[in-house]
């Protein structure tokens, strides 16, 4: 399996020989080592791997929030050298502004573009309706549950209408039913818009359900253990993908690649 997608298009996001180390009290920690990866335009790419394997670090590099120590990360053919405003980034941090209501939080990206409040309103309402937060427009983040805050952040991400979206375990804290609903919503959105999505998750079922390709990272320092192209035909029904005949094989291969990573950590 090659790092570049078979479609032949120039990759939108590309990692070349990427190393990343952190220094903690003078001691060097390698988080990513010699990693190559390419994401095609319009691709839905999921990244799975043991916790602490540097999945978020990869997204941060694309976002321009933490450059690689050596090697190069490029976006649209140009190296990422500063904050990348072409992509939207749904982080694990709660970055809603606590002094703003849900509606005012979701509208921030439009406000930054100088859109008038009256023009924003219907767009904000549509985004809030789409993620199932209707009725909570006037609530402050403090008044919402963790899952609802996450959904508000998702609405704020989608309203940006970016070229590419980076998502760091966006559905992690949600209950199973809500998770499926939002997965379906995200898939429909992606099918309509063909945005490029890099989606980090620890949930293998979720990765297989959503992705064109699933990248399995090793334990730290992260390398690519496996790139699994998901053969389940689209359009997919999030409730039914796990019963697709291909599912079992994908799951087993990914699971095996994950275990390898976890075991490799032990002797070191």
């Amino acid at each position: 399996m090659t790092g570049t997608r078979a479609s032949g298009a120039n990759p939108l996001i590309e990692f070349k020989a990427v190393h990343k180390s952190f220094f903690v009290r003078g001691q060097q920690f390698d988080v990513v080592r010699a990693l190559d990866l390419a994401v095609a335009p319009g691709e839905f790419l999921c990244i799975v791997g043991p916790s602490g394997s540097g999945k978020s670090t990869l997204l941060n590099m694309v976002a321009g929030l933490g450059p690689p120590s050596t090697g190069a990360v490029s976006y649209g053919g140009r190296p990422v050298s500063e904050v990348n405003t072409e992509v939207a980034y749904l982080t694990q941090h709660d970055t809603l502004l606590p002094w703003r209501t849900v509606a005012d939080n979701v509208g921030v990206p439009l406000e930054l573009r100088g859109m008038a409040a009256a023009t924003r309103r219907p767009l904000v309402q549509a985004a809030i309706d789409a993620i199932g937060l209707a009725g909570f427009e006037g609530h402050y983040p403090r008044q919402l549950s963790g899952g609802m805050r996450k959904r508000a952040m998702l609405a704020r991400t989608l309203i940006q209408d970016p070229q590419a979206i980076l998502m760091d375990e966006p559905f992690g804290p949600l209950d199973a039913q809500l998770k499926l609903m939002l997965q379906a919503e995200l898939m429909a959105l992606w099918a309509r818009s063909r945005k490029t999505i890099m989606f980090v998750t620890h949930d293998i079922v979720e990765a297989i359900t959503l992705a064109d390709r699933v990248v399995v990272l090793s334990a730290r320092p992260a390398r690519v253990n496996l790139i699994e192209t998901i053969a389940i035909p689209r359009p997919r029904d999030v409730h039914r993908t796990r019963f697709a005949p291909e599912f079992e094989t994908h799951y087993e291969r990914i699971w095996a690649a994950m275990e390898l990573g976890a075991l490799a950590q032990v002797p070191a």
């Binding site: 976002a63 321009g64 929030l65 904050v83 990348n84 405003t85 992509v87 939207a88 980034y89 982080t91 941090h93 970055t95 502004l97 921030v108 990206p109 406000e111 930054l112 573009r113 940006q160």
Partner: peptide, 22 residues
């Protein structure tokens, strides 16, 4: 909170907007 500032920067906020909004 620097993560809020980062989130705004990624949405394309200029320094003056970051000051006003965050």
């Amino acid at each position: 909170d620097s993560s809020m500032v980062d989130a705004l920067r990624m949405m394309g906020a200029r320094p003056a907007q970051i000051h006003r909004i965050v």
